[in-house]
Design a protein around this nucleic acid. Structure first.
Lengths: 179, 179
DNA sequence: GCTAACATACCGTCCAGTCGGTCGGTTTCG
DNA sequence: CGAAACCGACCGACTGGACGGTATGTTAGC
């Protein structure tokens, strides 16, 4: 039985980013956080890049999964993809882990790590807006949600701001209209 | 007469970020870029933090100025602040210098440097949306513009994507309706 | 006893910031 | 006037710490 698995290490890395900032995400810090030596850490992730990549991938997976759950919860709404995507973004915001932190760390270290996110964004935009009767407006709603999301992730907005809840309701309402 | 002034150094720093990424923004690189030794550079900016702060401040100033110009160009529209703000954001996107780069560098180095940006964002939202007959929708438009802006700055969107131009037109049209 | 899962010690590099010093100009004062 | 004292701009060698990565064990389970 292994005491530590890779997902625990990724979680520890997210913790470090949350507590000390993306720039302070060092191998030593991650190792300390999950009670491992640096050598032990590098045994699981052969380099820092590999660890970052795993963080990004886990985060993407998580976002897709959240969206899927929202889709399942509204069986009547057919193939409307817009609302679940917006819902998912708002959930990810609350969730002080995962994608936000991974994204920050990736940008700070090596922008090329964002490639998978880029692909995901393009795909979502195509699927969620293509079916709408007003694709442009649908995209605006999506971009607005992302604007809120990134604003919070980057720390340029107060997480307690009540505007988040108001925006969430309004965006979802508009999304319903436009599908 | 001094050969080099601070604004030239800040410009050089923006160049470095553009060419080599936020992570490679080192004092040596900036010094080399503006034909100065590191010692000489540190004579003007006593630390890297101080330089970053100057970058952020210059960028904010620039954005406000762009918005002000757009306001002046539409003397008939009264106090409608929303359109100039959106316009300014789109101009800043094109402009491969200034705020985008400063923002990236600041986030990578020390999130607390974003405080002035935070203040600016809050102020803009208050002013631009307060006067609208539908403040919530006005905020949505602003957030959408910022979503596009940040998406591009962070490199999760293709700068050539025609969606930028479409969004710009549509956002401005909606902004006009909502004022 | 062989392999996976660690630990320890160490190396090389990068980089912010320091420090002593140079050089041209300006002010002070005899 | 002219020299001494001073000053701001700038240089470049250096330092010390941080950090990614390696090399070499050591231990535990099969």
């Amino acid at each position: 039985m292994s005491k530590i698995d890779k997902t625990a290490i990724v979680r520890a890395a997210e913790e470090v980013v949350r507590e000390r900032g993306a720039r302070k995400l060092t191998l030593d810090a991650v190792a300390a956080k999950c009670g491992l030596s640096k050598g032990g850490l590098l045994h699981h992730f052969s380099s820092k890049q590999v660890l970052l990549k795993a963080m990004v991938e886990k985060a993407i997976e998580r976002e897709l999964q959240i969206a899927a759950e929202f889709t399942d919860d509204r069986p009547g709404a057919g193939q409307g993809e817009l609302q679940p995507r917006i819902d998912a973004l708002f959930v990810m915001m609350e969730d002080e882990k995962s994608l936000p932190r991974a994204l920050l760390a990736a940008v700070a270290e090596d922008p090329s790590l964002l490639e998978p996110i880029r692909a995901k964004e393009a795909k979502i935009r195509r699927e969620a807006c293509g079916a709408s009767k007003d694709p442009e407006l649908a995209q605006i709603l999506l971009f607005a949600a992302r604007g809120l999301f990134l604003g919070r992730v980057l720390g340029v907005m107060d997480p307690e701001d009540p505007v988040f809840e108001r925006m969430r309701k309004r965006l979802l309402a508009l999304a319903a209209e436009v599908e």
